[in-house]
Design a protein around this nucleic acid. Structure first.
Lengths: 232, 232
DNA sequence: TAGATATATTGATATATGTCATTATCTTTG
DNA sequence: CAAAGATAATGACATATATCAATATATCTA
């Protein structure tokens, strides 16, 4: 325990909010609880960086985090926006122990770190936990396939439509929504230049499909946006 | 056993060729061996189709297979070329029991099918097997990240360079190599039109970087190709 | 509050890439 | 072997998208 842990109730509080923790018995939860380190991040702070050793299991309990690949020519590709209670776990743990993407808080956030040996031993000893983990990894993988297709086979309007639907349904789960993502972030989510992203947003606005006011978005015509997503 | 199984020696023959089978004891191997169905596919035959139920674990023992996502407007994206002894296993098994990509033989091939319940029970009971499986899934995931970056952040020459290096190093493992992939397949591997793929190949040929003769390829200047891959 | 700095927007332009049409080459088949 | 069909190659053209430059707006800071 340190000065940052005072407001949290430990892993039990997360249990009901996450399918994966629901597989653990009280003893196992206590095991993690003992080992966990709670860290507070301010918006904009780097949580971990691509290319550095991946030594912890990370569970986001408050705030929002973007995970992104740092590609060529300082271009980033945002893989996902993570919200609580969800863990952030790269493929490195079972491969080369390295981070293959970076994570940055886009809101003030709280995360718990648990060393990997604890996590891995749970995977070995608790088959339900392992299976639930495999389910998560699989869903992630399916999402990545959708992402690849969106990015490689759709033109800009379709990609921006996908991003807006993603933010509405998966990230903010509300229709007028406010985001702390910059225009550059929206571009990094859709694999285009920020100028292009801005232009498409303006077109959608002019066509009455969305309402934009700074970082406040409202999708006025969901059907139309879905159609644009389909036609590419 | 049916008329097709006469030439094979069972799972033991595959054991030494695949890390994942190396985790299994003789009893477990025999379990799979009993359940497996061996199927022969001719080049061009569909092995399984995206959108159909995923009911089997599939292990390729001979030949080569392309896995590909069927996207929009009849455009395919080839995810990988699988060679023996390697299994082909989609994310559907631990999610929605569906195939999220298709698989087609690009050479005459032999594959063994094992029902998923056998596979899943091994994952639950043999922690080494589960861990090795997670390692494979993770490596696949890392490869997919590289693929996303190649496809979204590199221009056509960089993408074709990546494909040629992939074929040389990972698929055929030899430098002059012969492929049964069509030009359309090369395009589907690099996310572009077949005309564009052909054009880039011609440029590489004119610059003396590669030698092409029908489906026989030789990379004359590997360094140059690596450089093109880097600069995008 | 004013200046400075970052972010967002817009327009003009260059270019990478796809599409279409045509011809060439290879492969199959009667 | 010749005809037919598929695959490959090439050129002309259209267009989606990035880049660059300029301005506007928001945000921070002294």
């Amino acid at each position: 325990m340190n000065q940052y842990t005072q407001y949290t109730k430990g892993c039990s509080a997360c249990k009901d909010k996450s399918e994966i923790f629901n597989c653990l018995c009280q003893f196992e939860l206590d095991q993690i609880d003992e080992k966990r380190i709670e860290v507070h991040f301010k918006a904009g702070e780097l949580i971990f960086k691509q290319g550095t050793p991946n030594l912890h299991f990370l569970c986001l309990t408050q705030g929002k985090v973007k995970t992104y690949i740092e590609g060529y020519n300082d271009k980033n590709l945002i893989l996902s926006i993570v919200k609580p209670v969800e863990y952030i776990l790269g493929p490195g743990i079972y491969a080369d122990q390295m981070h293959h993407f970076s994570a940055m808080a886009i809101e003030d956030s709280v995360a718990c770190l648990v060393d990997l040996s604890t996590f891995k031993s749970l995977i070995r000893t608790n088959a339900d936990f392992a299976e639930e983990f495999l389910r998560k990894v699989s869903l992630q993988s399916i999402y990545n396939y959708d992402l690849i297709i969106s990015l490689t086979q759709k033109q800009m309007p379709g990609r921006i439509a996908d991003v807006l639907i993603y933010l509405k349904d998966k990230v903010y789960e509300s229709n007028p929504f406010h985001t702390t993502l910059s225009r550059q972030d929206l571009a990094d989510l859709s694999g285009m230049s920020k100028e292009s992203a801005i232009r498409i947003l303006r077109e959608f606005k002019d066509e009455g499909i969305i309402q934009v006011n700074g970082n406040d978005f409202e999708i006025l015509n969901v059907d139309s946006l879905m159609k644009i997503s389909q036609t590419g």
